[in-house]
């Protein structure tokens, strides 16, 4: 595997998740990648207050309203949608629940990176609580994503909760609960622990693995590993996330452990 050398890692934190300890992730990346400096920038939209309404308009226009319809840019968003995005940018609301086109969101985030820091040698990672999906041409529908890797990479805290599938039994029971009008909170209580939930204490630990995936993408073009116990495993089920990120006895497979050692020069 060929490495592209990296000069720096910058973590942009959009905030909005109380359980996410960004400093812990920064520390972890420093441990993993040795000499590479790791910086954190909080609430990146607030770096450009004069453009906040413009960004709000862009975010409002990349919403997914129907997972079977590919989002087209250029459609005029509604006034209320722009206002909501503006309040979110300004930190005036903690509410979330809107679904965005992941690739377009990546483009909006890329505008927040200072011009001199957009090269391949700097790994820019945006951590957000916006939920992302990407369009699958073959199936003609959107699929939820935990992360979209690229320049920059985007990792979604809500994506960690919503994108990997929960146990099959959960969905079967959910159907019944919905038909009966029963509250879904009760159902979540039943399956507590078997998936990562909102404001979950385990979120920071899980996020560490996804941040490392983003760095591997920048260095090698390959963020994933086929070893189900490696933190670079591309998990599609919650139980796989929990196993790879929290429960397995080793963090990285022998091959990736070697790469990391080489990176650190240890």
């Amino acid at each position: 595997m060929n490495f592209r050398s990296i000069e720096r890692i910058v973590l942009y934190n959009e905030g909005n998740s109380e359980k996410l300890e960004i400093e812990e992730i920064t520390k972890y990346l420093r441990q993993m990648f040795g000499k590479v400096p790791v910086d954190t920038r909080e609430k990146p939209f607030t770096l450009y207050p004069e453009k906040s309404l413009d960004y709000a308009r862009k975010l409002a226009s990349i919403r997914i309203h129907d997972v079977r319809v590919e989002t087209a840019t250029g459609e005029e968003p509604l006034y209320g949608e722009v206002q909501y995005e503006h309040r979110k940018i300004l930190g005036q609301t903690m509410a979330f629940g809107v679904l965005y086109d992941g690739f377009y969101l990546q483009r909006v985030f890329s505008e927040l990176i200072p011009a001199g820091e957009r090269g391949f040698d700097i790994v820019n990672i945006f951590i957000t609580n916006r939920l992302l999906a990407t369009w699958e041409e073959g199936e003609r529908r959107y699929h939820l994503r935990t992360s979209v890797y690229g320049f920059p990479s985007v990792i979604s805290t809500t994506g960690i909760v919503e994108a990997p599938a929960r146990p099959r039994e959960y969905y079967l029971l959910k159907q019944q609960y919905e038909a009966l009008g029963k509250d879904l909170l009760e159902l979540k209580e039943k399956f507590k622990g078997s998936f990562i939930d909102y404001e979950d204490d385990r979120l920071t630990k899980v996020m560490k693995g996804y941040a490392v995936q983003a760095v591997f993408y920048a260095m090698t073009g390959h963020p994933f590993c086929e070893d189900k116990g490696c933190r670079l495993y591309n998990a599609h089920w919650q139980e796989e996330v929990i196993f790879a990120q929290l429960e397995n006895e080793y963090e990285f497979c022998p091959r990736h452990t070697e790469y990391l050692k080489k990176m650190r020069g240890t």
Binding site: H65, D66, M94, F96, G97, E162, L184
Partner: peptide
């Protein structure tokens, strides 16, 4: 925009 089909848990806040 019509109905969004998903993410029931978050709809009240929105």
């Amino acid at each position: 925009k019509g109905f969004g089909a998903m993410w029931v848990e978050r709809s009240e806040d929105l």
